[in-house]
Design a protein around this nucleic acid. Structure first.
Lengths: 329, 329
DNA sequence: CGAAGGGTTTAAAGCGCTTTAGCCGTGCGG
DNA sequence: CCGCACGGCTAAAGCGCTTTAAACCCTTCG
């Protein structure tokens, strides 16, 4: 088996120096058209591909962004994909590293930095704020989708209060008056959404009720059972996230409660799940693509620009009306 | 801002050569206890972390396995996670790279090889067999979860025919006689599952019916509607995959058809979805962890061992009985 | 006709780590 | 005593690429 061709081999084949080859292959201005041709032909002939590790080592800059991913979490994974696309647009590459039971968020970040990532984008990170700040001192860090004050790191998130507020406005506009919120449990963002719900209702002169929920279907299902056990159902339910909403939908469906005829349901996140035809959930978009783009921009501003002060970008989420909401009967 | 400490800095701090530091930090036998101590202390003091790109470049071996991931596909992503765990056990690291609209499977593989991955594990790859073989000539390749003859690459998969056969046996054992299969569409594995279904029924002296399906919920939903439009429902439906099964469940549920009382439903894959409490789908396990382990083993045999002949590992899937199957009424 | 100038090319010095050959001192047997 | 083996350490040569300063070759101009 043949050894992989090196830059030197291409240079020899083309009859020029390795420097020229390097320049041509990276499309750096300088080499003449004639040289370019010869080099490209030689590279093609040899099937040359640059060794990435060697390039990274030699280059001052790596233009690599690190993103830890929890593969089992659909939302964060979708976001990682968007980051990949956004980074691509800005001429950056993304190094993904999986969070597993064996290596937690912190270890994964270390691994990414060891790979020479120039910045790290953390999607809904779970580590303590102090750790985020400490990390921020080691390398540019952008926290995405977590409500936390920027402090040595940048933050890109959506205004969750406003998002839930839109949901409330939509329902009230349809004529709903008895609206329940099934919250997201302990998580930080859950508090924002809860607050957004109560504020919005108050704005409409209504009273709200909040039921404990959680991040997954089971929590929504449990809440639905609580509601079903009561004398009469509210006319609408706003869940703190899509998965929770789906748990609600499921239990309602099984109990013969029709959505949206008998009760309207709204989720939050607008993940792939919500978009599925058979779920068709009215929900609030987290603007994944835009958050990703802003996050990459924040990182790039520190790397290519000269910003050093932390920024906080708060996007406005928007309601995506689908099939689970309708006027009350 | 301080430059990241290098091996040389640690060496200076400890008063030894860089060679010694390298040896100590990699836990290579040789250096004396005294040297070890000094080096470790110095490294600690400086907060030294080895630069991965430099190590990779200098090392002959990288012990890196490449895995392209389609982040939006839950099954392949779960499998990637299992690969990560399995690789870890064997002392290999995994480089993940996302397949996006911008860079397809082939490009991602190139990128992984450029990173010096020593082997590539492809989970349910979509590329033509010829391309797989071509790739196999460049580096060790293990194809996971795809029924294809090994040819310059190894294959690890489960016996899909047998898996569906088990489903049929289970249903027949419960007393079902009118069983329908909603297939997985064009995909290669869909054919196996279809064949397994028909074979198993024949074995029981029964007649089977196959409805066209597909890889996602919508396909199952469509099939369910076809069934509902007919005078009487079969007593059981076997879907070619979990998502398809979920589409079926959903439409049945909305139509007031109870599962499993009115009709039993079985999926295939045993992904996270199937395990969710509110779905609780009887399904066939793909043995993700075991497939991953075998795949890593296959790669390692080529890399650390001296195997060069392709192997095909066919695991036996097993039925996971949950709440969507029961005796017919 | 020589100096100046511009466009090309290249030699060579890294990038930060690994690895090998060889050095040095010690202890041992002959 | 000498030679030898051996444990412990290090100098130095890479790994395959990038980058910079300097060399080179023309052409142009005074």
């Amino acid at each position: 088996m043949h050894r992989r061709p090196r830059l030197e081999d291409v240079a020899a084949e083309a009859g020029v120096s390795t420097a020229s080859v390097s320049l041509v292959l990276r499309d750096v201005p300088g080499p003449s058209a004639h040289t370019r041709e010869r080099v490209l032909a030689a590279a093609e002939r040899l099937g040359y591909r640059a060794d990435r590790t060697a390039s990274l080592l030699a280059r001052r800059r790596t233009r690599l962004l690190g993103v830890p991913v929890l593969l089992r979490d659909a939302f964060r994974t979708e976001m990682a994909e968007e980051v990949q696309v956004a980074a691509d647009e800005r001429g950056y590459a993304v190094a993904l590293s999986a969070i597993t039971p064996v290596s937690d968020e912190a270890r994964v970040v270390d691994a990414l930095l060891d790979m020479r990532c120039e910045a790290v984008l953390l999607v809904a990170p779970e580590m303590p704020v102090a750790d985020l700040a400490a990390l921020g001192a080691r390398a540019p860090v952008v926290v995405v989708s977590r409500h936390v004050a920027p402090d040595g790191f940048d933050v890109v998130r959506v205004a969750d209060e406003a998002g839930v507020g839109e949901s409330v406005d939509h329902l009230v506009g349809l004529g709903h008056r008895r609206i329940v919120h099934v919250d997201g449990g302990e998580a930080a963002m859950a508090a924002d959404r809860r607050a957004g719900f109560l504020d919005a209702l108050r704005r409409h002169g209504l009273d709200g009720r909040v039921l404990p929920g959680g991040p997954v279907e089971a929590a929504g299902a449990a809440a639905a059972r609580v509601l079903l056990a009561e004398p009469d159902l509210p006319t609408a339910v706003i869940a703190a996230n899509d998965r929770c909403a789906i748990g609600l939908l499921d239990v309602f469906l099984r109990a013969g409660v029709r959505v949206p005829e008998d009760v309207s349901v709204i989720g939050y996140d607008d993940g792939e799940l919500a978009r599925l035809a058979h779920i068709d959930l009215t929900t609030v978009s987290q603007e994944a693509a835009e958050q990703a783009r802003q996050a990459v921009t924040a990182a790039v501003e520190r790397l290519d620009g000269d910003r050093t002060d932390p920024v906080e970008v708060v996007l406005t989420p928007h309601l995506v009306v689908r099939g689970t909401t309708a006027p009350p009967r």
